[in-house]
Amino acid sequence: MATQLATRDNSPVAVIRQNLNAMAPSFKAALPAHITVEKFTRVAMTAVQNNPDLQNADRNSLFGAIVRLAQDGLLPDGREAAIVMFGKQAQAMPMIAGVLKKIRQSGDVAYVSAQIVYSNDRFKWTLGFDENVEHEPAPLDQEPGEAVAAYAVAVLKDGSRLLEVMRKSEIEKVRNVSRAKGNGPWVQWWGEMARKTVMRRLSKRLPMSTDIEDQFERDETLKTIGQDTGPSEVHEIKLASRLDAIEAQIEDEPQTGRAEEDHGDQHDGAERITDDLLSQHEGK
């Protein structure tokens, strides 16, 4: 009797998808209630499929970046967050929209915003007992000019108004002590990094400053030269390393010559290995 052979897809996209599916229990434990595991995994896979560099990235760094975004409750959709490359390393990058989302969800802040000021804008701010800012962008028929500053504002539920303004020279000082001052987000996403920098300074004055500061601390794109790897980062890399073992087994399996009736048993075996690895992670 003829035997139908089954072929396993060992392409980078397929292997990454299998690993993400294996990480579902960890995602479920980390994600907030309003984001389902299915939605998060789907958005993460779309990000990988749309960026060939991510498909060839160091897998430990890729899975570590995805885990960090799950912990922060941010979707890697290019609006709330993105996964960016530093050489072969993938890193999580919360976008300013994602940061502002987290602040609004705290319930302590009625309004929050972070903006870039350009040379042809009309901009005025006052400090003292009544912090205030007036910002009128350049007319649409006029070029905005060069970026000269960034500012962040927040209005608390009790009506208090908070303001932080940073000149471009101050922002560049922060950039110059960054691990990635000459590449990655500071080159490709300067506006995002400038807005996050001034928002980080303002966040220290917000009621839930500890929570939002933790998110900034996990933002790899804001880490400075000499900053140590934190315990959570080591923990996430260990998880990625264990899942990488699953990938190695997937890639080592023969692609052909496998009877269709045996394929289901092998899939069950892979699931058992996944469960064992994830239980090891959850038990630590």
Rank of each mutant, 00 (worst) to 15 (best):
I96E: 02
L162R: 06
D219T: 08
A92P: 01
M166E: 12
M85Q: 09
A82I: 07
A29F: 08
E236C: 10
K284V: 03
I96W: 05
E220W: 12
A259L: 14
P254K: 07
F27Q: 01
G184Q: 01
G78R: 11
R195T: 02
G230D: 10
N132Q: 13
D268L: 12
A82Q: 11
G98Q: 15
V109A: 03
E236N: 15
A138P: 05
D244C: 08
L222P: 00
G107P: 03
N183E: 06
R201F: 04
E247K: 10
D58N: 15
E146Y: 09
M23F: 01
V15L: 13
L31W: 08
I171H: 03
G257D: 08
A6P: 06
G257A: 10
P32I: 01
A57E: 02
S61M: 06
H267W: 10
A245K: 14
A97R: 07
E213Y: 06
K204M: 13
T197D: 00
P144T: 08
D108S: 15
D244Q: 11
K173W: 08
E260I: 13
R179N: 01
K102S: 13
L75H: 00
L202W: 00
T41A: 04
M23Q: 14
L127C: 05
L75P: 05
I212G: 00
G87I: 05
T197F: 08
R200L: 14
T7K: 09
E192P: 03
E251L: 15
G87L: 08
R79L: 02
D77M: 05
E38M: 06
V15N: 04
R122Q: 12
G73H: 10
T210Y: 07
N50I: 04
L163P: 04
I212N: 01
V187C: 07
S169K: 11
W186V: 03
G191R: 13
G145E: 05
K28S: 06
P32D: 00
E261R: 11
R104S: 04
T210D: 15
F123M: 02
T46Y: 03
K168V: 04
K196F: 01
N19R: 10
L243D: 03
S203K: 03
H281T: 15
A92E: 02
F86M: 11
D228F: 08
A114Q: 07
I250G: 00
A110K: 12
A22P: 07
P185M: 04
D228M: 12
N120K: 14
S26V: 14
I66P: 02
W125G: 00
E220N: 12
S113Y: 07
V198S: 08
D130Q: 11
T41E: 01
M23P: 03
H34G: 05
R59N: 11
I96T: 09
V48K: 06
E192K: 06
K223P: 03
K124Y: 12
R42S: 11
S232F: 05
L74P: 15
S106T: 12
K39F: 03
V153T: 06
A22V: 06
Y111T: 11
W125I: 01
Y111S: 13
A22E: 03
P254H: 09
S61R: 13
N51K: 14
E271W: 10
K196S: 04
D130N: 13
R175I: 03
K157A: 04
M208T: 12
W190V: 08
Q115W: 01
L75K: 08
V234Q: 11
E251W: 09
K102P: 01
T197E: 10
A259P: 09
P207I: 09
R122C: 02
Q142M: 09
E251D: 07
E233H: 09
S241N: 06
